[in-house]
Design a protein around this nucleic acid. Sequence first.
DNA 1: CTGTTAGCGCTTTCAA
DNA 2: TTGAAAGCGCTAACAG
Lengths: 343, 343
Amino acid sequence: MAATIKDIKAETGLGLATISKYLNGGNVRSENRLKIEEAIRKLDYHPNETARSLVTKRTRTIGFVVNNIASNFSGVLLQHASAYLHDRGYGMMICDSNSDEKQEAESIRFCIEKQVDGIILIPVSMEPSSLQSAEKAGVPVVLLDREMHSDDFDCVIIDNSSAAERATDFLISSGHRKIAVIYSNEYTGHERFLGYRAAMKKAGIEIPEQYMYSARTHSTELGYTSMKALLKLKDRPTAVLSTNYEVSLGVIMALNEEGVRCPENISLIGFDELILPMVMKPKLTLVAQPMEEIASEGVRILLKRIEEGRKLPPQKVSLYAALKEGESVRRIQNRQKSRKESK
Amino acid sequence: MAATIKDIKAETGLGLATISKYLNGGNVRSENRLKIEEAIRKLDYHPNETARSLVTKRTRTIGFVVNNIASNFSGVLLQHASAYLHDRGYGMMICDSNSDEKQEAESIRFCIEKQVDGIILIPVSMEPSSLQSAEKAGVPVVLLDREMHSDDFDCVIIDNSSAAERATDFLISSGHRKIAVIYSNEYTGHERFLGYRAAMKKAGIEIPEQYMYSARTHSTELGYTSMKALLKLKDRPTAVLSTNYEVSLGVIMALNEEGVRCPENISLIGFDELILPMVMKPKLTLVAQPMEEIASEGVRILLKRIEEGRKLPPQKVSLYAALKEGESVRRIQNRQKSRKESK
DNA sequence: CTGTTAGCGCTTTCAA
DNA sequence: TTGAAAGCGCTAACAG
């Protein structure tokens, strides 16, 4: 069906090696170059990447394993990563782990059988067991958004804990003391919780048990049910730190449903500058992760490892996530606070 | 590095063909089967899909070219499609056309060089020129969400025109007569506009020029600026049909910014049951496309073409998209209307 | 059921 | 610079 290099050989009378060399950018006598180019055009020849890969052992394809393809977060990461990769001639094989460890391991296995040159992973758990197959196969892996207990892999994250701490500081300096937190026990959620707790401690504020809501994984449902519960409390918080995008969606749903207005009745800080904060009223105050940088750094590190290949020690890149002020935090008067602020 | 079938041969003393047969599910004497299985385990052998593909001419990979990876819409389609494909052992190579015809053609070319077995495409334009390379290479293509001027390709769409017509009918039967529309001149947008126009005509309602806003492509910005303009009108519409998800996001932004309440001050119908309608208040009345069905039908048709291969005539599947009532449409009194309704 | 053999389409020594 | 030949890891006749 499709023309092969042999057809070019027949058409030009040249040797296979010469044609191959031309295809790979080598030097060929210009007379021959012309011949080859004409034959290629005439026969509409396109090299068969499969055959090429078999001998070079490079597929120029990287595997991208995400916890949820449909989410806005991984969508944006995917978008940036794919742009960088395509620019460099790489394709992207995509797999959805559905936030499930087993599916994650299968996805990685799958990518490796497809002979990807490297893998970018948004990991589900902190246990690197699903990465065994990649290690065995010598396929480099870069972790995005979350790290693992093992230090064997490159990763690109943000400083979750300190970002959450700064967000909490902001609430406190706006006069809030009754600050609730909703988080997951996944890596990012937990780190952000730690930042929250540190800020509260620093400010000398006790955290009532019922101000902390968590679940194994983050979800819109977690945000929704937690917010509902918080609203039922006799001693309601005046502010809520929602440590994740999906969680924030749920929080907003609950607020809307109960007719609780933000920031009049409750203040809110979320994470991730995606669609929601663009369309919601009031504009959400949030911790903005540098999505494009996360993706580009991840790709850069992975390609370096693939192309230069040396056994550099794994590197961990931690990017800064800025707090972006919106209108969802109310400044309130607070005796103790105002004293502090006046000095 | 990695074990090959030859290592299994050396380990078991069997012939290559026997091992290959085993790997492909053929019958092998159980004694040998055991030997092979043990060797596979011992050597941690995994077949090299590249080599396999070279001879079978099947990569078990399909290309997925979308207009915008980051969008919620393609994300959901991607999610469903990938689930179906993985179940059948297929991988997915993903490319972003960025709603650009040139990038679309390049993406398709790219997929073909990667030897995908088939392509699922959310097309940018209605001109099938970017699909030439696929046709030449004999790679089947299924169009999702939009059709093309050419009838040469399978496609899975919804009945956009009639869905928009039903949505408009609903507004009219709720007593609205001043109904504006915001649409794009892409396929879906245009079709939906036609449905709107048909409904208006059927009801004998003239549409003022300034009630129709459109642009070449849909976008949040289109929704935002159009809604802003509509709100400035002396004779404001009482209802708006937003023919696309992104457009609706922009409409909501404008409404929020201007403090115009829905449905009290203006009624709204949108398209697509994605994140926005879940978190917005009031619940949006919308045309819900059957996302999972669109994806699964697309995959089903494509795999049938790949696996059965016969030259069936291209088929066009048009799915039904139901109107889901929310709370964003106000029922208003209207003299002419009430007469009609009373009979 | 099993093994031998011949490629799939390409790159890559190596000699010319 | 060029070309002949070997071979990447696997499957698919075909003969046994």
